[in-house]
Design a protein around this nucleic acid. Structure first.
Lengths: 157, 157
DNA sequence: TGAAATAGGTTTCAGGTTGCAACTAGAAAC
DNA sequence: GTTTCTAGTTGCAACCTGAAACCTATTTCA
């Protein structure tokens, strides 16, 4: 993989560094956004984002390599390639929406477009939050990080 | 800010590019993780992450500039500086946890350490998900992106 | 008090990444 | 069969990253 020492130690315990290896590069989240918005082709994404062609080629290749996008030649026009989200890619939706909502609250101050809605009633989704195992919404004051070993020791008492 | 043309157009509508301007650089999420784990000082964070000192100085400065961290000289030891999360920084918790949980599911395949728990019962938090405005858990099949104008037009009918 | 250690940086420089522009190869359209 | 379109690749300049050495203001230790 390629993580140097102290970070490799963290990565042995925490999956955040591994997640960032897959999605932490410049443009990756914007390409993901484009994919969620239904863009499937190189030229579409390129002109939508204004990203340099070599960088886009590099990022798409990487996202395919890590299994976030799937790359398929179009049968009806063999010049075209279709990039589509895999299940692993779709599973990044909560992360992306959480980040976007944070930007709405703290950066732009207004709701983003397009809006993510529940198909059933076309109502915008709720704010992405942290909930307890039994469904209570939790604030940071209600939470803390604990080492697993410590929790297991307490549970064993 | 410094966004070139097509991206600037997206940024006018969607807050994801603005959020990424604040948090999209290499190391930013790992520094945030360190801050959530209670690390407050330059040397602590540096040795924890193994990040180059110049880069850490640069990133801490940037996170302070955008209001995610607060920088305060320690009164009891005037060599030391305390970096602590602001409310804006704490509000990134759902994003960070969502990304980490994604990594657990798709990259490492095992729970991360330290564990984020509900203080009340020391139970790990639930998976971060997208919910409807009235609290139903939604899958991607239940969701879609719509342009605000279109939703408003429908609502006016 | 003076020397050594500590905290939080800055400087330097080699190497890697980004981004623009031009180019290419394979298919489709005219 | 020439032009156009799609998905790239190549070349090159500017910028960013990271390791190591250095710096300045405390604080500690003898």
């Amino acid at each position: 993989m390629g993580l140097r020492e102290p970070l490799a130690q963290i990565a042995a315990e925490c999956s955040l560094p591994k997640a960032l290896e897959a999605m932490g590069e410049r443009w990756s989240f914007l390409i993901l956004r484009a994919a969620f918005n239904g863009l499937k082709h190189f030229e579409e994404i390129q002109s939508n984002l204004g990203i340099a062609r070599n960088i886009l080629a590099n990022r798409l290749g990487r996202l395919v390599d890590v299994g976030i996008l799937d790359r398929q030649p179009c049968p009806e026009d063999r010049r075209k390639i279709e990039y589509r989200l895999t299940e692993k890619g779709v599973d990044l939706l909560p992360t992306m929406i959480a980040l976007r909502q944070w930007g709405e609250k703290w950066e732009t101050g207004c709701p983003s477009n397009p809006v993510l809605v529940d198909k059933r009633d076309l109502e915008p989704v709720a704010d992405v939050r942290v909930f307890s195992h039994d469904g209570r919404a939790l604030e940071w004051e209600d939470l803390s990080f604990h080492w697993r070993e410590e929790l297991e020791a307490r549970a064993a008492e």
